[in-house]
Amino acid sequence: MHYLLDIPAMIATSYVLGFLFYGFYRQYNARIQRRWGPSIFQNLYDNLKFLFKSETLSHGPMFFFGPMIIVSGAVTTVLFIPFLKDSIWLQGFSQHGNLILIIYLFVLGPLGNALAVGSSGNPFGVMGVTRGLTRLMGLEVPFFLGLALVMLQYETVSVHAIMAAQSSIGEWTLVTNPIAFLVILLPFIASMNAAPFDVVGAPQEVYAGPRVEFGGRFLGVLMTQNMMLSVGKLVLLVDLFLGGATNLFILIAKAFALFLLITSISAVFPRLKTEQAVDFFWKVPLGLGVVGVVATVWLQ
């Protein structure tokens, strides 16, 4: 019974936060470019409009199941991330999962993408997927190394236990282990598809990248999952590095601070080429990660 209320609440929270954050992102970018920009609800309008459009094209069953795999991956990921600390609300199934499961679920999105776009046969889509998987190769190694650093530090894989260990600002992982935060931050920007590493959807190069063949309702579904999963990732980082949140307002404040950091970085950097991005990930964050492992293992 509790689940019946909790799960819709989690999905709704991540959706609402998602479109508000992305609306803010568009407005913030507009102000940097000296424009007025759209209203903060613009992403809600776009998304609902797409969900109410027709969908007339088909490239076989896999083209239909791909977006479904992606969206179920996003919803499941969100449900396994605890949104609040010391609360029975907004927990989803997080008591039954752990960080390693969340890492597994993150890969469902690119997998569904590759399956759906592959069956569509659009060369721009395939190019986008290839670029996405290449970037994934670059970003996952430092990302998982950073998560491993956190697990190593707390000697647990439970997100709840990691949150519980950070009771005051002095005990935040951000303060006690800044190297792990840096190692995760750069791949995290890439996994949010933000500017220096947005090689997948790269406008002007591969049109919409993997989404080139999706229009109408499929695009609406993909937009929804993107917004929800982004919020899920932000909340995960808040849980791991900023000590979690005891109520929704603190959660929004912390997630927003993190989002602001990422948008500010992405607003001022131009896009890297795919091979430059992979090179960068395998040099800077990975090098930092190795230093972090040495520091954590030998200096403790």
Binding site: P38, A208, G215
Partner: peptide, 22 residues
């Protein structure tokens, strides 16, 4: 579409492909 007239304030954005356009 760019800064001077800024059609995005009316919700008018460029679409990449015909599939996504209105």
């Amino acid at each position: 579409m760019t800064s001077r007239f800024d059609a995005e304030r009316f919700g008018i954005v460029n679409a990449a492909t015909p599939r996504q356009a209105d």
